[in-house]
Design a protein around this nucleic acid. Structure first.
Length: 118
DNA sequence: AGTATGACTTTAG
DNA sequence: ACTAAAGCCATAC
């Protein structure tokens, strides 16, 4: 089992990584989360860059729903030609709507985990 | 061992 | 609305 996790006080980098992976895996279809949200839930909103790195390194390995992770504006951070279109396509397939500026209404689609998800 | 990088976020000006 | 810089830290080289 995963050991208890203390926001802001992860004992090791591995715990943080494990939390991030677990949280991302827990995102249900049709919902999205932001990088900062993941980082905050895993212990430190300032460590977003680790979340980014984890997505790069563990997406294939862990089979993460990487496309459900967007930036805080509800937009896709990937550049066109580097997965942007693919991500949008995947999200639309799950029922997520993009506005004229290519952003998602986080008020509607943001995943807000319940305690049991932890 | 030191430096650079990263699919980010926040604050300050 | 904009740019710039700081913040975090595991990898890659």
């Amino acid at each position: 089992m995963t050991p208890p996790f203390f926001p802001g006080k992860n004992r090791t980098a591995r715990d943080f990584t494990r939390e991030v992976v677990r949280l991302i895996k827990a995102v249900p279809p049709g919902k999205v989360v932001t990088y900062g949200q993941i980082a905050a839930m895993a212990g430190s909103y300032l460590s977003v860059r680790r979340v980014v790195w984890i997505l790069h390194s563990s997406t294939e390995k862990e089979g993460l729903p990487w496309h459900r992770v967007v930036n805080r504006m509800g937009g896709i951070s990937l550049k066109p030609g580097e997965g942007n279109e693919r991500q949008k396509s995947l999200l639309r397939k799950e029922g997520i709507v993009f506005d004229a500026r290519g952003r998602i209404d986080l008020g509607r689609f943001r995943w807000e985990p319940d305690e049991e998800d932890f």
